[in-house]
């Protein structure tokens, strides 16, 4: 059999397994990213505009997450929490670990985006009598979200690849399933080629999709730039 035939052999015999594994990888990526977005946005707002004690707590959280490997965070949630009486299944532990991790990074991306909004926008908004919270929702967020899109695109592509750490807690995502298929068929190069092609294709699709969102939300005539 030549290389192409072997790959076809794999996809026809293990197609369903691979497809399910890919879907699980995509699921972990998107749920993890969504948790990160839902938590990251308020974390960044609290960190930039909140009272001092909150700022300190959130900064500590971010430093803690950024300063420890994601795999350690996952093991903590999966293996250490049960000792404290919180037992989670592998999938839930994975999306929580990835979500909490991504929240810290996304909070930093948003913080940079808010920081890039000119002070003059604040002055103008306050000068017509808007409250600080309305300035946030009506001026800072709409502009900041746009600035943050490229960084968030990076983040979701990272997560797509980092979702493979769920392998270590036996979630049957793509790497896990590939390893089993590889061991069973001994077609290691072939199966990991399929895996690699999937990751690359997905990241290209995500990049294109982000580009479309960026263009759709672009402000006519204006290039909004993050701080470089």
């Amino acid at each position: 059999m030549d290389f192409v035939e072997e790959i076809l052999y794999l996809t026809s015999n293990y197609g369903t397994d691979l497809l399910n594994a890919m879907l699980l990888t995509i699921e972990i990526t998107f749920i993890g990213f969504s948790i990160g977005l839902l938590l990251g946005l308020p974390i960044s707002l609290g960190r930039v505009y909140g009272p001092l004690p909150l700022k300190v707590i959130l900064a500590t959280y971010i430093e803690f997450i950024r300063g420890t490997p994601m795999i350690v965070q996952l093991f903590f949630i999966y293996y250490a929490l049960p000792i404290m009486g919180i037992t989670l299944d592998a999938f839930t532990a994975s999306i929580i670990a990835i979500g909490l991790n991504s929240a810290a990074y996304q909070a930093e991306y948003f913080r940079m985006a808010f920081g890039a909004i000119q002070r003059e926008q604040w002055e103008a908004a306050l000068s017509i009598g808007l409250s600080r919270s309305t300035v946030l929702t009506s001026v800072v967020l709409p502009q900041g979200m746009r600035i943050a899109i490229p960084a968030l695109t990076n983040e979701i592509i990272y997560l797509l690849k980092y979702s493979s750490i769920a392998y270590f807690v036996t979630v049957p995502e793509l790497v896990y399933v590939s390893k089993i298929i590889g061991a069973r068929t001994l077609l290691h190069i072939q199966i990991y080629t399929v895996t690699a092609v999937f990751y690359i294709s997905m990241s290209i699709i995500l990049t294109k999709f982000a580009k479309i969102i960026e263009e759709k939300t672009a402000i006519p005539g204006l290039v909004l730039k993050g701080r470089t």
Partner: peptide, 26 residues
Amino acid sequence: REKIGFVFQHFNLFLHLTAIENVMLG
């Protein structure tokens, strides 16, 4: 502030809003 209008040197229009939305926001 509501009773005092301010016109800035650098205009400071809200970049993500159209001309009329800028006026309507307040």
